[in-house]
Design a protein around this nucleic acid. Sequence first.
DNA 1: AGAAACATACCAACCGGTCGGTTTTTATAT
DNA 2: ATATAAAAACCGACCGGTTGGTATGTTTCT
Lengths: 219, 219
Amino acid sequence: MSHDPPHIPLPEFPPYLKRERPASRAERTRQALLEAAFLEIYLKGFRAASLSDILEVSGCTKGALYHHFTDKHALGLAALGDAFHRFLDHNWYQPLAGTDDPVTELRRIIERHVNGELGVDPRLGCPINNLSQEMSPIDEEFRLFLSGVLAEWRGHIADALERGKAAGTVRADVDAEGVAAYIVATHQGVSGMLKTTRDISLAEKCAHSYFDYLEHLRA
Amino acid sequence: MSHDPPHIPLPEFPPYLKRERPASRAERTRQALLEAAFLEIYLKGFRAASLSDILEVSGCTKGALYHHFTDKHALGLAALGDAFHRFLDHNWYQPLAGTDDPVTELRRIIERHVNGELGVDPRLGCPINNLSQEMSPIDEEFRLFLSGVLAEWRGHIADALERGKAAGTVRADVDAEGVAAYIVATHQGVSGMLKTTRDISLAEKCAHSYFDYLEHLRA
DNA sequence: AGAAACATACCAACCGGTCGGTTTTTATAT
DNA sequence: ATATAAAAACCGACCGGTTGGTATGTTTCT
């Protein structure tokens, strides 16, 4: 009996995660390492991520790796910080920044997730959540890094909610920070459950309850 | 610079996870292995869990381990299945089974979690969630096992909601299964976020939104 | 020429798992 | 109750494989 899951094809990199071709050769290998590292860590987690595999995928060698990064930690943090910021900026920060009706915009964002439009493989889950769960209890540096990412994420949602309150689209008694925390947590929870059940109908049902809650915030 | 987190003392085993003294010596070593394995896996995750450490903690040897279990997988599944079922039965199934007012009971259960009364270290998170996140994408056997645990969990909540509908404490138009899924997912999400932020005030704020949502289900 | 960028052979530590041998328990016969 | 043989339970040295990291040498760019 094998423990291997049915073959999972490598997820396509969504276009906004693609980088423009860098000029110098050194920078090119650096980017190749970052990209391969992110993919490997996303697929296997940080601890199980193999440097040899990263080197194979990126086409680099150990010498290049340890020339650009001090150790596995530094490589991982660089790769993740980069990818996380791009993803959140493109899918959350920018949409939220452009509206005074955050409830409607949050619904859109969730819908895009459920519909699989964001290039996040539901079987693999949200990489931010994955890393949080794996590394927070055992590595303080990772925990602080991820805690910062989550705080920034909540901050952008809270800002949008505050603007909604000012614009009269959101109830005035809403605790923006608390609701932002709840929204992020729920989002992570649903994507986590999906990873295990692989039952898309569950995601749709959850989204329904999710929307019920969000509508409840309207002025 | 060290990546180690500040020292985390071993969590106390909540009493309902303690086992009565088994009679035979063989059964005693089996239980010692299960207990040590659960603790080690809870602390480090399955892949990072070290058999040598499990043996040291349990006071057993490799020979004993591989006499009782075919391999690491079997040991892990046995240890986790056992612990999960006890935990859920004591903290969720039994309380929910004894009421026709599931909303009030769910509030109580959440409150107990937030207050740390259940012996779950918020820094380490919910073990079911931890294992789900780590193993689901890379091991089909684990995924199916965890998927079953989650389904059972949702099932007990859905049953309680249905009883609430019949008893008139829950709105008749509530989709019990969908809401149960949402409740479990949100619960996992909050406990996951707490693991990274370590900010208890966030848990309280999330609980507030959580309760808002739950109250919204009342008839 | 000198520095930055890379390549490769190598290392100790650890991993899960195996296997031949020893001890303890159990079943049976007396 | 005791002897004994078979089976279950346990022990621990050992194995091949992988890991992250290093040291030394070579190529490429400025």
